[in-house]
Design a protein around this nucleic acid. Sequence first.
DNA 1: ATGAAAGCGCTAACAC
DNA 2: GTGTTAGCGCTTTCAT
Lengths: 337, 337
Amino acid sequence: MNIKEVAKLAGFSKSTVSRVLNDSPLVTKSTRKKVLDVIESVGFFPNYVARSLKIKETKTIGVIVPDIGNPFYFEVLRGIEKVLDKKGFNIMLCNSEYNEKKELRYISLLASKKVDGIIVAPSSEKSNGIKNLFTWNIPFVIFDIPQKKLKTNSILVDHSQCSYMATKYLIENGHKNIVVIDAFRPPGFKSKFILGYLKALNEYNIPINPEFIREALPDIVGGYSTIKKLITQKLYFTGVITICDLAAVGVYKAANKFNFKIPNDISVVGNDDIPLAKYLNPPLTTIHQPKYLLGYKSAKLLLSQIQNKKHNDIKVMKLDVKLIKRCSVKRRLENAD
Amino acid sequence: MNIKEVAKLAGFSKSTVSRVLNDSPLVTKSTRKKVLDVIESVGFFPNYVARSLKIKETKTIGVIVPDIGNPFYFEVLRGIEKVLDKKGFNIMLCNSEYNEKKELRYISLLASKKVDGIIVAPSSEKSNGIKNLFTWNIPFVIFDIPQKKLKTNSILVDHSQCSYMATKYLIENGHKNIVVIDAFRPPGFKSKFILGYLKALNEYNIPINPEFIREALPDIVGGYSTIKKLITQKLYFTGVITICDLAAVGVYKAANKFNFKIPNDISVVGNDDIPLAKYLNPPLTTIHQPKYLLGYKSAKLLLSQIQNKKHNDIKVMKLDVKLIKRCSVKRRLENAD
DNA sequence: ATGAAAGCGCTAACAC
DNA sequence: GTGTTAGCGCTTTCAT
């Protein structure tokens, strides 16, 4: 069943049917009714892929995240869905798994499928996929991971601010031997998360121990295996900050496994404040990130870019974070070490 | 840039270009190379919406879930993505919010966008959207929520088995006043989850208290407000089973708010075993559901339906669940009540 | 207000 | 092995 058959049944031409489908004002009430009646009776619905081919607009947005299993991205997704649904857009969801190849493949696919725009949390700070988006002239906005030497529409959070606040809080609670678990970064890249950590250490004149600076996958396994290594290496530390709450959960798991108590033996502060963070055992002290808003703003920005067709004025927005004190950090006596 | 321009540049016809794009064996190595060279040099990529229009296949699957914020669905989604990505399909993700209207709207939209198939966790046991999928002859599979009086491809878990096991475990630990927090069900519908609960109660000759049978949104707020109501009504109960772990977290929250201790004052067993369940405070005793597998099998089944084009042989598969004993249930003395 | 016709970018008979 | 052509289902000028 297509527009042509409907036209025949209604006794009008394709054009007229198309017009009523698109709420054109140039159709009489009576003919509109007749057409609508046959549409109703035969259960016709238009073929949007044909429509998209013609009008060059698919009303779908690609969303690429690095880990579909991380609650952080779910929250962002909720914000994205909220605004996109209201405007009649669909989401094509892609999971890059922090794999640049896969990310690139998805970007090409989305380009071929002619999505109207893309929202992406890049797999790293130097993503070739992102560069392609530029050259292909596809509207897009980035969130969470800014791109090195590339000015793009982005909704961000200051990761150095996160780690700075986390580290400072630990220091002020008497910790000196603080481990930082960062995400994997591109070779030679100065991680903002590490920078904030270093800044706090410097401010308090605490010596830097390179052994304490670690990279891992930002998930439970990553946090777990990092701490496991540290413990088996017999490194002494009392505090840990992590790139995300999931990694902090990994720290919990490792602590449990090796009979360290949190926060008594190991204090930890996470980053992002996933919905379940406050229900963990113990409730996780963490840096709250406005996840829903991150998604909401990203979608809004993308939509405005698509409508205005002005790719020239690029917008970068930084959202505020804040420290949420719960129970995973213990105050230590001064000079305990 | 399109196939025609590429053809001109390469000195061949559209068909030849199309053939190399589709790896047809009917092109000489040399012409293939020439064509590939210009494709490379001009950075051409094919328009899949035109392709889809022609071949009537979009290589995209619609996935509809009722709550994009519930980790249960994330895990399922991971399983779906795994198989779909391998076969070159994209996912169009839709969030019905347990709203039948919204679900129906999404289903129509997906139909118009000509997705090759749909995987859906229905918003309820009587979903009109699902009926449409039948009449529109779109390949689909259902998971989690079976449809009343409708035989469809489905990958399920026996919800009565879940509640039966949970209730029985509570009873065997000395509990008699057990609250069940179910999801909202259609008017007049006999919930399997309630049935399993009742069955366990009957087996142990425990009287049924209708006040203990509750419906709520399957999330933290739902669990929280249900328990809050119960407590302010001064109802006496020592055990709770919930339709999902998120609702159990809501129970935790309410208990905390009103100074009840878990498991000492209130014992709770959840359902589905989300990844963070074991890290909650206290670790949640729950019924484990094979979430990843649910998604994996659903996607596999859908793909096989799409390929075979046999809509006649409908497959229903039930996956096993199991009780995971953690720390949210306390053993009570016999005859304590 | 309605219809005829061209065309979006691709694929697939069919012809050579 | 390659080209010609028709057509997928729609929108949109341009006539009338």
